[in-house]
Amino acid sequence: MTEMLSYDFMQRALLAAVLVGITAPAVGIYLVQRRQALMGDGMGHVAMTGVGLGFIFQTSPVWMAVLVCVLGAVTMELVRSRGNQRGDIALAMLFYGGMACGKLLVSLSAEAGSGSLESYLWGSILTVAPADLAAIAVLGAVVIAVTVGLRRQLFAICQDEDFARVTGLPVRTLNLLLAVMAAVTVTVAMRVVGLLLVSALMVVPVVAAQQLTRSFAATQAASIALGVVVSLAGVTGSYHLDVPSGPAIVLLAIAVFAVFSALAAPLARRRHRGNTEHGPKVCDGRPPVRGPERTSSDTTTPERRAGLAQ
C-alpha cells in the first residue's frame, strides 16, 4: 500500500478518483430521479466530438470536451422541456452524430495514433497530469457546490416541475444549470472511467444506495460515499492486478448493487413488520367456496352458484 502511494502518478490517480467518486453520483441522482438515467451516456457520446476538435486544433481535449458537452446538454434540455413527441429521435441523432463526428475528427488530426482516442473512451487514470488534476478539482468543486448546495431546489424541479414553477423557482434556469453540471461531470470523469462508462458512475452508486434508503437526502449521501469507495477500491485493485481502472470501478459498483439488492428484501420485510399490528398476520377467514367441497355441494345452494358464476 505504501509502495503504491509513493508514486506521484498514483497519488494523482487516487485524488482524481475521489473527486469523480463524489461528483458523478451527486449529479447522477437528479438524472435518476427524473428517469433520465441514460442521459449521461448520451453526453459521453457528444463529448467525443469535443475530444476530436481538441486533437484537430491542438488544444486541450478536456476543455474542448467541456465546451461541446455543455452545448450538447443545453440542446438536450431544450428538446426535453419542449416535450416534443419526436424529442427522442432528435436526441438519438445528437448521440450518434456526436460519436461519429468524434471518431472522424480524430482520424483526420495529425497526431492520430491508435491509442489516442482509446484513452478517452476507456479512461487512463494513471496518465493524469498535474494540470489535468487542477482542472478536475476546480470543475468538481463547482459541481459539488451546486448539486449539494441547491439540493432542495433541484429536488423540487426533478420531483414535480409544475409544482416547482408555482413555488416561484426559476425552473428553466435550474434545468439548464443541472444539464450543464451533468455535462461538466461527464468530462471530469472522462479521464477516470472513460466516456463509454461515465454514465455508470453517475447511475450505479445511486441505484445501489436506494435499495437500502427511504429518503432523498440519505440516498444522495450514501451514493456519494459509495462512489468514493468504489472509485478508490477500483483504482487500488487495478494497480495490484494490472487491469484498466475504469472497468474495475464499474464492475465493483455493479457488484455492490447486486449485494444491496439482495439485502433490500429482508430489510423491507423487517421495516413493514411494525405496520402489521393492525391486521392479522395472514387472512384467517376462508371464502365460502373452496377446494373439493365445491364439487360435492355447489348445486345445493343458489348463493354458491351465484358465487361461482362471477
Binding site: 427524473r34 428517469r35 420531483q159 436506494q210 427511504r214 429518503s215
Partner: peptide, 11 residues
Amino acid sequence: ASGVPATVREV
C-alpha cells in the same frame, strides 16, 4: 413516486 425514493416530509 419518482426515480429516487423520497419521504413524505421531503415532498
